[in-house]
Each structure stands twice: as structure tokens, then as C-alpha cells.
């Protein structure tokens, strides 16, 4: 079964048809929620708003709370120009922080879970990215002549490194076995296994 026809990525006989409504829903469900950057931003907004409100309102009602030294702040702002390095540094810092938040908000974010193909919108199954790689490594290690195998998922590829003597023929066998296992699990989007053999 294992032919040695060059390095064409192996595909099992009937690759699962992925990309239906259920798969799209699963992809959305398992996508990262950006909780960490959102927590940081929300904390910043709350803290800054609360500090400013407390300072201004307490001063307005004649009982100033000293969160920041208002006198020193005012003096600083009145004596430093827009072209002073401190002003420029603060402006640059704000812009950098904004760019980071914007980046976190716009990029889709990397999820730890990979959805598995299904037809039912009410039953979504996901597997940890790491476990998907381990499944490929396990399939490789189950073969005769293969020592230790390690794998990781990179984009739409699963990079598999195995120890064993056997050259291209072994690589082909390992790829067949690992790809068959991955196709059984049917990750969305489909992943292609690449194999590197270390003697």
C-alpha cells in the first residue's frame, strides 16, 4: 500500500468533507475569546476612570482626595511643552499601548482547541492542539522500527519528527500511519502531516 512516489503529501482514500455549517460554528465556538487583553484593558479603563472621577468630584465638593498630587501635575503640564521628551515619551507610550490593544482586538487569536469535523450544529467537539499532535506521534510510534516520535501543530501542518533507521521508506510509512490517524479525527481545517526522520 505504501508506495514510494516522491513527497506528495498523503491523503486518505476518503478525506472528510469539512466546512459545513456545523464546522463553521465549531470554529467560532473554539476561537480564542481574548480574555487576557480584555481583562487588562478593562482594568485600565476602570482604574483610570475611577481615579479621575474621585479626584475631580472630591475637589468639587471641597474635600479633595489626593490620588495624585494635583499641584505638581498642573505645574508639570504648564511648564512642559509638547516637544519636551517627557511629553513625547508619554504620547509614544499611549500610542504603543493602543496599538497593542488594537492588535489583540483585530487578530483572530490562537485557540488551544482544534474543532473536529461534524455534521450536527448542536454537538461541537474540539480537541487540544497538543493532543492532536500527540495522536499523530502515537500513530508513528506504533509502527515497527520507529523509536521516539515528537509532533507539533503548525498552521495547517503537523510536523512529526521520528527516530528510526529506514530512510525515505520509513518516512513514507510513518506519514501514511499518522495521516490516517489524523484524518480519522478529522480536524477543521484538515491538517497535513510532514515527517522528518532522524537516524
Amino acid at each position: 500500500m505504501a508506495t514510494h512516489a516522491g513527497h506528495v503529501p498523503h491523503r486518505s482514500a476518503s478525506p472528510p468533507k469539512v466546512g459545513g455549517a456545523a464546522d463553521r460554528k465549531a470554529t467560532r465556538t473554539f476561537r480564542s475569546r481574548r480574555v487576557l487583553p480584555a481583562l487588562v484593558a478593562a482594568l485600565l479603563l476602570t482604574a483610570a476612570g475611577a481615579a479621575a472621577a474621585t479626584q475631580v468630584i472630591s475637589t468639587l465638593i471641597g474635600r479633595p482626595v489626593r490620588i495624585a498630587d494635583q499641584g505638581r501635575l498642573t505645574t508639570w503640564a504648564a511648564t512642559h511643552g509638547w516637544d519636551h521628551w517627557q511629553t513625547l515619551a508619554i504620547a509614544g507610550g499611549l500610542m504603543l499601548l493602543g496599538a497593542l490593544l488594537l492588535w489583540a482586538g483585530l487578530l483572530p487569536g490562537r485557540s488551544k482547541l482544534v474543532p473536529l469535523h461534524g455534521e450536527d450544529r448542536d454537538l461541537l467537539v474540539g480537541v487540544a492542539r497538543r493532543d492532536l499532535a500527540n495522536a499523530a506521534a502515537d500513530a508513528a510510534e506504533s509502527l515497527l522500527g520507529v523509536g521516539k516520535a515528537g509532533a507539533h501543530v503548525k498552521g495547517r501542518r503537523i510536523l512529526l519528527t521520528v527516530r528510526g533507521a529506514g530512510g525515505p521508506a520509513l518516512a513514507e510509512r510513518v506519514r501514511d500511519a499518522a495521516q490516517r490517524r489524523i484524518d480519522e479525527m478529522a480536524p477543521v481545517p484538515p491538517r497535513t502531516v510532514s515527517v522528518r526522520v532522524k537516524e
Binding site: R34, P37, W82, M95, L102
Partner: peptide, 30 residues
């Protein structure tokens, strides 16, 4: 997904506001 959408919109708007404020101050100073 609702929290996820809120985070997407919130981070984008807050980020834009900070970039605009910092950027304008920087341009003025330069």
C-alpha cells in the same frame, strides 16, 4: 460568544482611542 464579541469591539475601540490620542500628541510635539 457574546463576551467574545464584546472583547473584540472593546479592544478595537479602546485601542483606536489610545492610538489617536497618543498619535495626535506625538505629531503636535514633532
Amino acid at each position: 460568544r457574546r463576551a467574545s464579541r464584546l472583547n473584540h469591539v472593546g479592544l478595537t475601540l479602546f485601542g483606536l482611542a489610545l492610538v489617536a490620542a497618543g498619535g495626535l500628541a506625538l505629531l503636535r510635539g514633532l
